[in-house]
Design a protein around this nucleic acid. Structure first.
Lengths: 178, 178
DNA sequence: CCCATCATTCAAAACATTTTGAACGTTGGG
DNA sequence: CCCAACGTTCAAAATGTTTTGAATGATGGG
């Protein structure tokens, strides 16, 4: 294959590895996704091992993750016994999968914990000394700020997840201006 | 101090540690920030060591990071020689600091690399065999998708960073009901 | 100028994550 | 039913990250 094509392949895989890392996934996950994304033909586990020079165990495990996150799909190639994979090439779909899984859970957990703290503080108020009451009010102020942040995040997520097609810019700018 | 106050303190610090980890910072960074956030008085390095049960070296290094990211500030307490710190309590400011540093760089780097790939592919086109040309066009399509994604991210970042307004609790809840 | 009191540094230790590869399933063709 | 060709698993090795603490540097009071 021409050297330029290889170079582009390599830098794309490296860039996606970086992006994966940024989102808390493994390096290999990004490289596998990038490699599949630039392959017009589905690839087998052995193809991927060979291309990326990593063990078959890693590829097998990581492909399962990619499937779980809706970033790759299994493909049957007739006449072949091997498993073949192709990348989900709709980036918006991938983004939505990731956001609706991990990120949304994160935000909801945070809001839940913060809500519990508020309840605890309110319930305990009458048992507190005057100084402690003052501190409790201070806590409630800071917690309110955190809640505002997470509620903003929740709204932003909801907006992105609600959009069926490729995300339009109008939606996001509207949130910020309000 | 009352047990409820301690419990809230602890769960807030733990929650912020989790958030820090999510954003690619260290655990301790989140815990220190959370601890400072819930302290009406500035705290010294030794106060923080004592509260979080971690070595002074860690606290010293991590406080430098927190300062670098605009998440905490040094405070002089008259009559004391120690350094005292307080959290930057404006969450919106903290978010802007983080986004305008790391995240923005990340997006710009990605766009730069993708742009280079497009140039390389276009420059090499005339040297390619017909099959290679077809593959190059496939690459250009996939790269265009990636560029669209990063350009969207860039716009979203720009919008958030451009807004001066800090979000308050009431404003957010009002938006969500609409 | 010296001492006491802090803060900072950084090499090594503790800890956590990722990757490997040999052993073990599974499946389909013969 | 057996073999060959694959996929999967998981304990251990490699690698990467975080934390410690002893040594060192800085600074103000006396």
């Amino acid at each position: 294959m021409h050297q330029t094509l290889n170079a582009v392949n390599e830098s794309t895989a490296t860039g996606l590895a970086r992006l994966a890392r940024f989102f808390g996934f493994s390096d290999i996950m990004g490289r596998l996704y990038g490699t599949l994304l630039l392959s017009p033909e589905p690839m087998s586990l052995d193809d991927l091992c060979d291309r990326l020079q990593i063990s078959k165990g890693s590829v097998s495990m990581t492909m399962r993750d990619l499937e779980r996150w809706g970033m790759a799909k299994e493909v049957w190639v007739r006449g072949k016994r091997r498993k073949y994979y192709k990348a989900e090439s709709d980036m918006w779909q991938v983004i939505r999968n990731v956001l609706s899984g991990r990120e949304q859970r994160e935000v909801q957990l945070a809001l839940h914990v913060l809500g519990e703290s508020v309840e605890k503080l309110q319930a305990a108020e009458c048992q507190l000394s005057p100084e402690e009451q003052q501190l409790a009010r201070y806590y409630l102020d800071r917690i309110a700020d955190l809640q505002a942040f997470f509620q903003f995040a929740q709204l932003a997520l909801h907006t992105v997840l609600g959009s069926e097609k490729s995300l339009d810019f109008e939606a996001i700018t509207r949130i910020e201006i309000e």
